[in-house]
Design a binder for these strands. Structure first.
Length: 669
RNA sequence: GCUGCUGUAGCUCAGUGGUAGAGCGCGUCCUUGGUAAGGACGAGGUCAUGGGUUCGACCCCCAUCAGCAGCUCCA
């Protein structure tokens, strides 16, 4: 008896040498053994058939009910897919990496292939690959784990023509010397892999689906070859798969590009230019409400609004460092000399569409001598900026080439920095809270010491990074630090949210910058009558209106709270005999600052209700004989239905209360 | 930028090597109605753009542009 296992229920069992979790499962009940897919041994996920080392172990047997099992299932699905692709497209197919994804909204696994010349896999081929996978599942091929020495491993992979695997072996050994490597295989398929996997391909079952095919660079490096990535997902139960597909389908209906069209919020038109949204009246209303609301807060907090042009002299951007370092992501400079060609010389004048607002705000700071008594100076602007985003990056409102930042730059003394950052965090949180965006994460974005894209000296970077850390800790925020995510002039705190299909987007940002004040030569006179360099905070609680509203549309599924709704009330006369009364209702509500529209079409009231509901208008005011006689309206909510009748003044007052509470006080009749 | 896919009416989409169709929307008329679709008639398309193959191209081929998914990038 040399293996002892302790089970979650507290009891322990002894087994002879060579016992595996499967041995234990079989010992407990044969049904359990059949249901098991893997095991947790001392908090490590392992194969069912992996012999337990001598000694005492905590053992948890995992069945399809356990969360961890899904990862094993999906990992095996990836292998089976690779096996199927090889069967269909030949032994020259190279397979590289194929992980399980458990935190991805859409996909459950993928595998990256390097296909032989002339072979392409398209969406239409996925069915064929799935069919091959199903055949492999029917075969119930045992999945075997083997360990090989480094030499054997290399020989095995070389034998199969798997150069990527050979590269991986070398890299793994360079990172961490090892004597043996584990492999998993079924039938003639063999893959270097840590595992664990299901005991046989039959256990994969039928609840899997291949979803998408796309390109992906080897090692995520754009200088390396582009591989073919196939995405899929897998579940233990067909019902779970169906539910998942349904969920994704539903989520796609919330897509802001779809809703933007349906609700007439904005327009992205080829004739205007890629990534250049036109805000339609309804979308512009949402934007204006958000802007007015935020501006009220800013002024209350001592910000001063400024306005600056959309273009400025090239030298400004040379000073800031944007040009030429970020030349690739800017619109090309505007120049007037007819024979100008190629790069502008260093002394040449020209103008640049602004990729950021900061240089203008720095110049405003410099426009007069500043004393410590003037600080902090908070300059805010809803400034439209222009960036040449790569064509493949453009996406609805979330990644555009012309967008408006709710930008501000705070110039302060080093002593004031901490409290300024804190109040910026407060503002960003206020924005997210007010708009119900509670599912976000906070990233402290630091520089990557191995890269040289940053300006300024080490000392200032360290100061800035430490200060940000200090604030997020003091405020007890949940955050993660990520190297390499900093701006070129300073580190930042970023607020990141997900869109309807789980893609992450940075919204609000707070950036500490010691460098631009140096580059622009900012000064203030201190209490000591000496000149000092101010510190600068760049911050944007929304980030950009375009991206923020894109996310907001998806968050609300187009059904904005009353204060943001482009049309707050639709007045629906039951027949055109009551259009005149409807008009008077419209006038009364509009006079109280309510955005209201009359539907005087010749449709029946049911059709009018349907139309207003689909347009996500929060309230409908239905008027007919009864209402006209009593000077009332019948109120219907877009989701709650008929709320009953009440007087016009009463409704106007209650709507105003709900609007001004920003959704906190729903109307009741 | 890279890989793959897509581009037909305002929108969503069918369709064929012999110059086009549906539903919704839009317009006019009829209907005058009570809480998610009343009816009739009508207008509307250089089938993304430019080349090529063909007697003939919306359809096949090439290029360009744009969109979508993913990768990379993102001050």
């Amino acid at each position: 008896m040399s293996v002892t296992v302790e089970l979650p229920d507290g009891c322990s069992r002894d087994y002879p040498d060579g016992a595996s979790p499967l041995t234990v499962a079989e010992d407990i009940a044969s049904g359990l053994a059949r249901a098991c897919v893997a095991a947790m041994v001392d908090d490590r996920l392992v194969d069912l058939q992996r012999p337990l080392a001598a000694g005492t172990h905590e053992l948890r047997l995992l069945t399809d009910r356990d969360e961890e099992s899904l990862e094993v299932l999906r990992h095996t699905a990836a292998h089976v897919m690779a096996q199927a692709v090889r069967r269909l497209y030949g032994d020259d197919v190279q397979y590289t990496i194929g992980p399980a994804l458990t935190d991805d909204f859409q996909y459950g696994f993928y595998y990256d292939f390097d296909l032989p010349d002339g072979i392409h896999i398209s969406q239409d081929d996925l069915e064929k690959i799935e069919a091959e996978m199903k055949a492999i599942v029917r075969d119930k091929q045992p999945i075997q784990r083997t360990e090989m020495s480094v030499e054997e491993a290399k020989a095995a992979m070389k034998d199969r023509g798997q150069c990527y695997k050979l590269e991986m072996i070398d890299d793994m050994l360079a990172a961490e010397p090892a004597t043996g490597l584990s492999f998993y295989g079924q039938d003639d398929f063999l893959d270097m892999c840590r595992g664990p996997h299901l005991p046989d391909t039959g256990k994969l079952g039928k609840a899997f689906k291949l979803l998408n095919v796309a390109g992906a660079y080897w090692r995520g490096d754009e200088t390396k070859p582009m591989l073919t990535r196939i995405y899929g997902t897998a579940f233990f139960d067909k019902k779970d798969l169906a539910a998942h597909l349904e969920r994704v389908e539903e989520a796609r209906k919330r897509d802001h590009r779809v809703l933007g069209k349906q609700l007439e919020l904005f327009l992205l038109d080829e004739t205007v230019g890629p990534g250049m949204p036109l805000w339609l009246p309804k979308g512009a209303t949402v934007r204006r409400e958000l802007q007015d609301w935020l501006q009220g807060h800013l002024i209350g907090q001592g910000y001063q609004m400024v306005v600056t042009p959309h273009i400025g002299k090239l030298d400004l951007w040379r000073t800031s460092g944007h040009y030429p370092y970020y030349k690739e992501s800017q619109f090309p400079p505007i120049r007037f000399d007819d024979d100008a060609a190629g790069e502008p010389e260093a002394d040449e004048h020209g103008f640049l569409l602004k990729p950021m607002n900061c240089p203008f705000h720095l110049e405003i700071y410099k426009s007069k001598q500043r004393s410590y008594r003037d600080l902090p100076l908070r300059l805010a602007e809803f400034g439209q900026v222009y960036r040449w985003e790569q064509s493949g990056e453009l996406s609805g409102l979330t990644r555009v080439r012309a967008f408006t930042q709710d930008d501000a730059h705070i110039f302060c003394t080093p002593e004031q920095l901490e409290s300024e950052i804190e109040s910026c965090v407060g503002l960003a949180e206020l924005v997210l809270r007010t708009l119900d965006l509670d599912d976000y994460r906070v990233r402290v974005s630091l520089r990557d010491p191995d890269r040289d894209k940053y300006v300024g000296d080490e000392e200032h970077w360290t100061l800035a990074e430490d200060k940000l850390r200090q604030v997020v800790r003091k405020l007890a925020m949940n955050y993660s630090e990520e190297k390499g995510e900093a701006a070129f002039y300073g580190p930042k705190i970023d607020f990141i949210v997900k869109d309807c299909i789980g893609r992450e987007w940075q919204l609000g940002t707070i950036q500490v910058d010691y460098n631009l004040p140096v580059r622009f030569g900012l000064e203030y006179v201190g209490a000591d009558n000496q000149t000092h360099q101010p510190v600068m905070v760049h911050r944007a609680p929304f980030g950009s209106f375009e991206r923020f509203i894109g996310i907001l549309i998806e968050h609300y599924g187009g059904a904005f709270p009353l204060w943001l709704s482009p049309v707050q009330v639709a007045v629906l006369p039951v027949s055109d005999k009551f259009n005149a009364y409807g008009k008077s209702v419209v006038a009364a509500l509009a006079a109280r600052g309510i955005r209201v529209e009359l539907d005087d079409s010749s449709d029946k009231v049911g059709a009018k209700i349907r139309r207003a509901t689909l347009q996500k208008v929060p309230y409908m005011a239905i008027v007919g004989q009864r209402e006209a006689e009593g000077e009332t309206v019948s109120i219907r909510h877009r989701t709650d239905g008929d709320l009953g009748a009440t007087g016009i003044e009463d409704v106007a007052g209650k709507l105003a209360v709900e609007r001004d509470s920003r959704g906190a006080t729903p109307l009741t009749v």
